[in-house]
Design a protein around this nucleic acid. Structure first.
Length: 428
DNA sequence: TCTGGGGTCCTAGGACCC
DNA sequence: TCTGGGGTCCTAGGACCC
């Protein structure tokens, strides 16, 4: 049995935890730079506020309904997420954190111990609510895809009230019949349209297709989804939590930038993020994509990217920053109004099976190749300090000039959980 | 006045080579 | 004179998710 637990409009719910005055009001949260709406609380959803629309286009609607608008407060969400995940972890023996607000659960040593999954789901919900004040949906299923479907039912279909269990034919059919095909995990609008043409409208219709034929006509991924909907596990646990094949860090700037130093500082801080994530999953980076661009909405869209290949795969942030340094002059062009930049690790290899050096140290000057062990100890220390005191406590000198490109966050809530000055006060 | 997210994976098609 | 295959690698862009 698998479970998927996730929060109801997580960012918006997180905003409501520490501010009781907005709990009964419609709330939306914006993406970086207050660009788009990325979370809509249930009250706001009922007013017809759409997700992923540019904020400035929808501002009038938000004002009309007196909607509370918040910028993304990642420090807050990360803390709230940690708390939530810790509570959930107590209810299973294997948890995979799939995103900031979603985790898959497994119950390997619970065989026969849980008599009533429905009841168990409500226990999880109640505990999370009591300890974090976050509303969650809990879906159980015999495959990861069915757990996802059950989670959808728990939150979106009437009559489920936060918990759904797909462990028999009757509920499987009931839930899949009530789900649009595009509500199935992995079926987006594009594929949905093609399937509609074939008369496949509900998740149940999709489950009736011949997996092999659909696989030939569309893709292996679709074949897998069909099998999973029929209770045949294709995504085993290791696949669900497989190491990432690419790791990107990209961001648009709060204000346009024009100078090479600002660009360098932004790219360097992206290196720090990518390096940290690579080390987290024990990967080494062989190729790093580095890019900078104007806005695609501009008249003369400009984008330059370069792939830097390391002689020897590395997970060292300093080596990544060196790559940026060496590549930057050929990416930067004076006069361009830069809107966005980023770096991405493209070719990742396992740190466990690192290829050794044929011609060590003396033949090269690259930082990642000299004294590898020293650098890996340095990075471990760096990660530990930043984990304990917060990301950004230790920075490369190159990333410090941030004032020019910091993102716009005009509606930021206080750092309730990460700043002594902003801790909520209770007045008696 | 101007404003338009971010991450991951996959694939089609082009460039290049023999 | 005209026509012709197949592999690898890279890139841009699409699809999907939250």
């Amino acid at each position: 049995m698998y479970a998927l637990v996730d929060a109801v409009s997580f960012y918006a719910s997180a905003e409501k935890i520490f501010d009781p005055s907005i709990r009964q009001r419609p709330v939306v949260v914006l993406t970086n730079n207050d660009g788009c709406i990325c979370a809509v609380c249930p009250i706001a959803r009922r007013l017809g506020i759409p997700k992923f629309k540019p904020y400035f286009q929808i501002k009038w609607l938000l004002e009309k309904h007196n909607v509370v608008v918040r910028s993304s407060n990642y420090a807050l969400y990360a803390d709230v997420s940690d708390k939530m995940m810790n509570v959930i972890a107590r209810y299973c023996d294997n948890q995979y954190i799939y995103s900031i607000d979603e985790s898959f659960l497994q119950f390997n040593h619970y065989q026969g111990l849980i008599k009533n999954w429905h009841h168990y789901g409500h226990q999880i919900r109640t505990a999370v609510w009591k300890e974090t004040r976050l509303p969650v949906g809990v879906g159980f299923g015999t495959t990861p895809t069915l757990a996802k479907a059950a989670n959808h039912a728990a939150k979106k279909l009437s009559g489920f009230n936060g918990v759904a269990v797909v462990d028999n034919e009757l509920t499987r059919k009931e839930i899949l019949l009530r789900m649009a095909v595009t509500d199935v995990w992995g079926i987006g609008s594009r594929l949905g349209k093609k399937l509609n043409v074939l008369g496949v409208r509900s998740a149940w219709d999709l489950a009736q297709l011949n997996a092999k034929q659909a696989g030939k006509q569309f893709s292996v991924v679709l074949a897998r989804t069909i099998n999973e909907l029929n209770g045949v596990t294709c995504l085993d646990w290791n696949e669900v939590k497989a190491a990432k094949k690419e790791i990107f860090s990209t961001r648009s700037f709060g204000q346009r930038i024009f100078d090479i130093n600002s660009l360098k500082s932004a790219l360097t801080s992206h290196c720090a993020v990518v390096g940290r994530k690579a080390r987290q999953q024990s990967s080494l980076i062989k190729k790093l994509l580095i890019f900078a661009a104007s806005s695609p909405h501009d008249n003369n869209y400009y984008k330059r990217s370069l792939v830097y290949e390391f002689p020897i795969a590395t997970d060292n942030t300093l080596a990544l920053a060196d790559a940026v340094q060496s590549v930057l002059p050929s990416i930067f062009q004076a006069g361009i109004s830069y809107y966005r930049c980023g770096v991405g690790a493209l070719e990742l290899t396992s740190a466990q099976y690192q290829q050794g050096e044929l011609f060590p140290v003396s033949l090269n000057k690259n930082r990642n190749q000299s004294s590898n062990s020293n650098n890996s100890a340095l990075m471990q220390c760096y990660d530990r300090i930043n984990q304990k005191y917060g990301h950004g406590t230790l920075q490369l000198a190159g990333e410090t000039q941030q004032n020019k490109w910091q993102m716009r966050r005009a509606f930021l809530s206080p750092s309730y959980t990460s700043n002594w000055q902003e801790i909520p006060m209770i007045k008696c």
